[in-house]
Each structure stands twice: as C-alpha cells, then as structure tokens.
C-alpha cells in the first residue's frame, strides 16, 4: 500500500482531518471570500489555514472544538495575510483606519426608511424589500464596504465572534470594534436601500432622508 510508511494511527488521524476539511470546505471558502473579496486570495487563505491547522493539531485538546479552532486559524491567517499585503502595497483599505474615518455621517437605518407605522403587521414594505433583495445584492453590498468595516461585520454577524474575540483577533480596542460595527451596518443598510430602489423594490415609500454629505447648490 502507498500509505505503508505511516503508522496506522497517524494514517487514521490524517483521514479524519481530511474528512473534516472536506465537510467544512464550503464554509471555510465562503468565509474567506467574504473576508478577502478575492476568489484567489480566499483559496490561498483556506489552503494556508489548513496547513497551519495540521501543523498545530497536537495543540487541540478537545477534538469536539475542532471547528471553532479551525475557523480561528482561518481568521488569523487572513489577518496576517492582510497585514503583510498592506506593508507591501501600502494599501489604503487596511485594518487600522485612522480615528476620523471611523466616524461618519449619521447612522442610516433601512428599517426606518421602509417602515410604515400605520400598517399593522410586518409583512409589509420592509418584508418585501428583505425578501426581494437577491443574495448577489447582499454579497456585493458587503463586498463594497471598506475592508476594516467589512471584516469586523463578517466576524461578528457571519462568524458569531464576540466583540472581545474580534478585538483580540484584529488587535484593536473594544470601542473600535463597536464603532466599526455601527459604521459597517449603517453603510451596508444605506447600500441595500440604494440597491432596493434601483431594483424597483421600493414602491410608495417615502424618499430617503437627505444625507449629511449631500451638499450641492
């Protein structure tokens, strides 16, 4: 047999690892894609995370926590790739926005734009819009967020990390996690509002409030 070089236990361990990675591949890739926005980068992040996971497998004390452990490695792999790239390319869209960039215009709420209080049950304009938006609309709205905001939001809303965990993963203060999350949600909801309007999903609904950056003359 080709596998005869490996002791039986080691071979079994490798097989279990392979099965688990195969089972989680879609979620690993989907998460990496939302974090990186780039299919090739996402594949590289997954591949590197899997390599790291294998090399650290002895550190995993509770096999039933494999999944959470693996996703943490995926996130750490992404963060280090991102930092490396930032140093190399001096990209503007990096993890550490300056403080001023965290504050933006007043928060935007999709619900407030859509909700008509005189209608008695939800199942009304806001439900129509939520159900009418395509997965692609939501994906592209997420992808359009500045990196720091998108990553924070994906970690909290998609991956379910606590604010403290995100603070540790990204090495940023807890208050920054909160402010990025608020900005991310506001930007995402404003973007979904625009997409819903372009898609003709919003009918008979009041116009959006004037935004503070409107200006003009």
């Amino acid at each position: 047999m080709a596998e005869s070089d490996r002791p039986q236990g080691a071979e079994e361990r490798r097989r279990i690892f392979e099965r688990e990675i195969d089972r989680l591949a879609d979620r690993l890739y989907g998460t990496a894609l939302r974090l990186t926005r780039d299919p090739e980068d996402a594949e590289d992040v997954v591949a590197e995370a899997v390599t790291r996971a294998w090399s650290k497998l002895d550190e995993l004390r509770h096999p039933d926590q494999f999944e959470g452990w693996l996703f943490r490695i995926l996130n750490n792999t992404f963060v280090s790739l991102w930092r490396r790239r930032r140093c190399r390319q001096d990209r503007e869209t990096e993890l550490n926005l300056s403080e001023g960039e965290e504050d933006g215009p007043a928060p935007f709420s999709l619900f407030e734009q859509l909700h008509q209080p005189f209608l008695l049950w939800w199942g009304t304009p806001e439900k129509q819009v939520l159900d009418g938006l395509l997965r692609e609309d939501i994906q592209s709205a997420l992808d359009a967020l500045p990196d720091a905001f998108r990553v924070t939001m994906v970690m909290v809303e998609v991956e379910g990390y606590t604010y403290q965990e995100v603070s540790d993963l990204l090495d940023i203060p807890l208050g920054t996690v909160r402010s990025r999350l608020n900005r991310a949600r506001s930007l995402l909801q404003a973007s979904l509002w625009e997409r819903a309007r372009e898609a003709g999903l919003v009918h008979g609904v009041r116009k959006p409030r004037a935004r503070s950056n409107g200006g003009g003359g």
């Binding site: 894609l33 594949e43 939501i138």
Partner: peptide, 25 residues
C-alpha cells in the same frame, strides 16, 4: 436581515480548491 447576510456568506468551494486541499493533505 442578519439571516440574509449570513446566507450571503455561503458559497460553494470551487472544485479546484477541494482538489488542492486533498493533494496537500
């Protein structure tokens, strides 16, 4: 809305990636 965002993050891993992972492992 949160559920929709969560669903939007689900994407099938390309077959090439699955092959690459299998080869690596």
């Amino acid at each position: 809305l949160r559920e929709r965002i969560d669903q939007a993050a689900e994407t099938r891993a390309p077959e090439a990636l699955r092959r690459r992972l299998r080869r690596m492992i």
